[in-house]
């Protein structure tokens, strides 16, 4: 879905160069997440997903150069 957004605005050579699972333990390192929110996540998200709640991905892409005419 996100890659399609890159494509739709005109980027080319779109590639995912890194993809890392992000779980509850990873989120707990961030000061943005209070302990009560992390407890809430533990309660409402199935335990089998606690290690892979989301993925961190890095997308690279390029803005096309104008076509060269001869």
């Amino acid at each position: 879905m996100l890659l399609k957004k890159f494509f739709n605005v005109g980027f080319e050579e779109i590639d995912v160069v890194e993809r890392t699972p992000f779980g509850l333990e990873d989120l707990s390192r961030y000061p943005l997440f209070a302990p009560d929110f992390l407890d809430f996540l533990r309660r409402v998200v199935p335990s089998e997903r606690h290690r892979e709640l989301v993925y961190s991905i890095t997308i690279v892409a390029q803005k096309p150069r104008p076509a060269t005419t001869f």
Partner: peptide, 19 residues
């Protein structure tokens, strides 16, 4: 981002996505 980039410019964007 596309608008402000020069032709041939690159993006490297890290973000969180849901599996």
């Amino acid at each position: 981002a596309f608008r402000v980039m020069r032709p041939g410019g690159r993006v490297s964007i890290t973000d969180l996505v849901l599996a």
